[in-house]
């Protein structure tokens, strides 16, 4: 029996036997704690169908009313002002605008973020060694992972703010504009 089950089936030290559990159900479950499970069919398939239909319908409605942009034929001689990357990269473009060393926001910061993302599950775990416990305290902030929560939230909000500014609030020569004017 694993840990979970020992918690459910508390052993009485005075007895060599014990009542496990009486469960209402349709499947024979022996030596297992009662699970809180339901049949995939139909419970999950209802959710799956509703979700699929809703997303497909939404996408069709958007596609009916909003056309994908198609500007003039590509022309290497006519540079648009400002030239913008796809929206998910305008945050990086916005960061590059603040510095004269584009390698830092353009390459080093995104690379560091990717490596950090890869490492999250390997640092946020039960520390076994002293070094692990130290790393955990510095980068995760203990069992409640306060440091990690703050860092991750800053990363998401930062990315969001930079993308919105870069995509909507930047006009000619990357000057600040208001999109509704």
């Amino acid at each position: 029996m694993d840990k979970d089950q020992e918690k459910t089936f508390i052993k009485d030290p005075n007895k060599t036997y014990g009542l496990m559990e009486m469960v209402d159900g349709t499947s024979p479950m022996v030596e297992k704690t009662p699970e809180d499970t339901v049949e995939t069919f139909p419970h999950y398939f209802i959710l799956l169908t509703i979700c699929t239909l809703a997303v497909t319908l939404c996408l069709f409605m958007i596609s009916l009313f909003f056309d994908a942009p198609l500007e003039d034929l590509a022309n290497p001689l006519v540079t648009p002002n400002p030239g913008k990357a796809p929206w998910y990269f305008t945050g990086i473009q916005e960061l590059i605008h603040y510095t004269d060393k584009p390698v830092i926001p353009g390459i080093i910061i995104p690379l560091c973020i990717i490596i950090w993302l890869f490492l999250i599950p390997y640092i946020d775990r039960e520390p076994r060694t002293q070094a692990g416990s130290f790393l955990n305290r510095v980068f995760i902030g203990g069992e409640k992972r306060k440091v990690l929560l703050v860092l991750f939230t800053v990363f998401i909000l930062g990315a969001l703010v930079l993308i919105v500014i870069g995509e909507l609030f930047r006009g000619e020569n990357w000057n600040f504009i208001l999109p509704w004017k």
Binding site: E71, A74, P76, Q93
Partner: peptide, 29 residues
């Protein structure tokens, strides 16, 4: 996937979007 698809319509948006993006990549030391 999204970025490579961005070039395919071959309009100004695509051309300069990819030009800007690949210029940023060229900053790699």
């Amino acid at each position: 996937l999204s970025y490579t698809g961005y070039l395919l319509p071959w309009d100004q948006l695509a051309y300069w979007g990819i030009t800007v993006g690949t210029t940023i990549m060229a900053y790699t030391p």
